[in-house]
Design a protein around this nucleic acid. Sequence first.
DNA 1: TTTTGATAGATTTGTTAAAAAAGTCAGCCA
DNA 2: TGGCTGACTTTTTTAACAAATCTATCAAAA
Lengths: 205, 205
Amino acid sequence: MSVGSDQQDIKREKILEASYQRFLHYGYSKTTMNEIAGDLSLSKALLYYYFPDKSQLYVAVMRKIAGDYLILLKSRLEKITDLKEAFVFQINTHHDFIVNNYNFFDSFRLNEQNLPDTIWDIVSEMHQTEMKLLSDIFKSNVDGGKIRSVNNPDEIVDLLLDALHGVRVRSVSHKKMRFPQKEHLDEIHAKRLLLIDIFIKGLMY
Amino acid sequence: MSVGSDQQDIKREKILEASYQRFLHYGYSKTTMNEIAGDLSLSKALLYYYFPDKSQLYVAVMRKIAGDYLILLKSRLEKITDLKEAFVFQINTHHDFIVNNYNFFDSFRLNEQNLPDTIWDIVSEMHQTEMKLLSDIFKSNVDGGKIRSVNNPDEIVDLLLDALHGVRVRSVSHKKMRFPQKEHLDEIHAKRLLLIDIFIKGLMY
DNA sequence: TTTTGATAGATTTGTTAAAAAAGTCAGCCA
DNA sequence: TGGCTGACTTTTTTAACAAATCTATCAAAA
């Protein structure tokens, strides 16, 4: 990946961590470079020594938390063989990822158009990795004879992810609140379990 | 419902129609009472004779188009017995309703908070009616032995609607466009057919 | 090589006056 | 007298512009 001394990498990490906290609590546009520098007792100019500009600093933070998310997902899914269990874990982990970083993602909701396109590469990579992990489990379930063979496993996995996503979106947008309440989380979870259940039954012989 | 002479009702209708056209083409906030009055060659004051204020005029238009939508849905679904066909029709009709009135609904997207709460009653009523129509078909399919009995048909119907909804949302929000393109509509449609297929299979014996 | 203070240039924010819109009302008229 | 209007008041939006804040740069210090 990147070259540089250990010292540089450590400082880079420190900057990423401080930036993450700011972005997380105040969002992208309400975070200033001065504040980040202040948190680290550094000069603002140093931030520009390590990162070309604010937007690319943001993308770097995004890359980091996306990476952490994927590592968590991977480590757990590689041990899971049950298809239902796999989807439940995926959907819960993804949900936590969104909820825990809600403010961080406000640059997506308000479409902050000055962000570099590389951020979409990260989004795309996340999706591809999720798909790959689940598809593998799916295929091994097909091979194991637990569900019937289909000609396009990836499409099926993608479809179920879409459907599960819809369970959250609808239950939120229906009411005027923008974000699911604690009470609703259980309801969403129950609905998703039911959906996975029916869907997988529909894939059996 | 409302009392008044036939003449009054006719004028009311004319106002609703003219308002609808304005809201549809320019959205809520970019439509003025003067323009609506101008289209009808009436004075603005007359609008206030028939409707208490702008927001309630908007709600009245909403109630009208929601009513039309539900009538269309009802007339067709009452003749459909096949569960799959019913869901396909529902989802397509709903989609058309949203697409055809896209600008009209901009008051929802930008959350125009000065709209009266009664608008949510309409949304709620739409959903309930949709549910009722589909649930009836669902139940008659259960009775006919085509799918297995479940303890809560409404919940199942609701779930499938959520899931189908998700197919559209994900395929849109994934890319940065806010609205599905023509080319995507076919893809969405195909995905939904597949989802309905698998889901209903999962409900069989 | 890493760090900074000073500073230029761009963007956001706050302010205020003018314009446009919502909403009201006394009275006209068929 | 119910339906309608023009003229009016009040509220909201827009435009312009100065002040403040923020991003980004750079010469020079550590």
